[in-house]
Design a protein around this nucleic acid. Sequence first.
DNA 1: CTTCCTCTAGGCACTTCTACCCATACGAAT
DNA 2: ATTCGTATGGGTAGAAGTGCCTAGAGGAAG
Lengths: 216, 216
Amino acid sequence: MNERRTIVIADDHPLVRKGLRQMIETLPETIVLEAENGEEALRLIREHHPALALLDIEMPKMTGFDVAKRVNDEGLPVSVIFLTMFKEEQVFNKAMDTGVKGYVLKENAITEVLQCIAAVSEGRYYLSPTISDFLVRRNSRLSSPAQDNSGLSLLTPAERSVLKMVATMKTNQQIADELNISIKTVHNHRNHICDKLGLRGTHALMKFAIENNSQL
Amino acid sequence: MNERRTIVIADDHPLVRKGLRQMIETLPETIVLEAENGEEALRLIREHHPALALLDIEMPKMTGFDVAKRVNDEGLPVSVIFLTMFKEEQVFNKAMDTGVKGYVLKENAITEVLQCIAAVSEGRYYLSPTISDFLVRRNSRLSSPAQDNSGLSLLTPAERSVLKMVATMKTNQQIADELNISIKTVHNHRNHICDKLGLRGTHALMKFAIENNSQL
DNA sequence: CTTCCTCTAGGCACTTCTACCCATACGAAT
DNA sequence: ATTCGTATGGGTAGAAGTGCCTAGAGGAAG
């Protein structure tokens, strides 16, 4: 990548923008565009299609969430980074759902911003380590391990292996072939699993298998 | 927590242990125990039940993985932190499966170790931001983002929204209801998506949707 | 105006999965 | 020996999804 790249920064505090601009402009071949609210940020993203957008969450007119959501809906080719002081789990989870590629806490070292820009530019994710905790919990569903565990522990070994293979998107026929058993047996195992876990509906079992396959 | 706490550090390089000890002993009320291989580390953990154990992965006799696995199996009440230079995704994933609470890269700032100790002591997870990328991908099941992207850009907006809802395990009927269109239209969108992405088979589309739902 | 794409909707045959039944065989526990 | 759980196999009905067609309405581009 030897071209110039554009980065939009959006924050309602001029001082923050100033500081960010100075840091980011130490990077080679980089153009910084500033926005003081969400609407302006979205306009800049639409018109200048920057590679990155560093957004504050709390901004006038449109929040960082609003901007990220629009970017997502319109399929704009920009990687969004949230730069915020919110370290609440809900805020972070909402951010991940909105498809942001980076999440940097303002309280952390300023060098983190540059590390984040570098990582996201290469297509990776970057999260402030302070909140990596949330991500682990988010994915392993550790917020309520009690009732999940109780359900899973009811399963017999055969049911467990079937469930593992369901999680890999195999059809019943494929599972039957790989385990050298009848497809009817696979059917029965699935039914028993659904009974034990209280699952109903066409894809409930697959949904469960995928969400919990790290616990299998 | 006003008691003394014990921390085991294990690394086969004396210089690394020396450096770690000096940094960690700046913390109040902290006792550092050193091990130069995995076996010794495990023995120290069993006998002194420390709060934390900082383990190198590559060590003689027992690797950090071996130690973490035994700690897990025996239910020893210690939080394991891996301190390593491995930034490969597989190594990290294996570490997460072994139940480690922290994963710090040696290449990163030494202050990260202290941050990690603080976070894990409070019951949180801590990951070097360089590898938070892996965690995000681990959970959204992204292993090959490159060629997928090319296919995704072929989709029309309507197809994209259907695909998003497929990723949430909704049935065609639910999708039709939410979008106020006929279930046949949803069928058609799915078929077109499969055509464009070259997907075949019963669950290929759902598999794709789930693996790529962060890119939608 | 014609052509092309998108979104909409439907038909039809087929496969896959769900939700109920049922039976047999084996081993463990009582 | 009987009972229980587990694994295995089957039947039937219906719901859901796939694959491959046709076709009209609306818009954009030529």
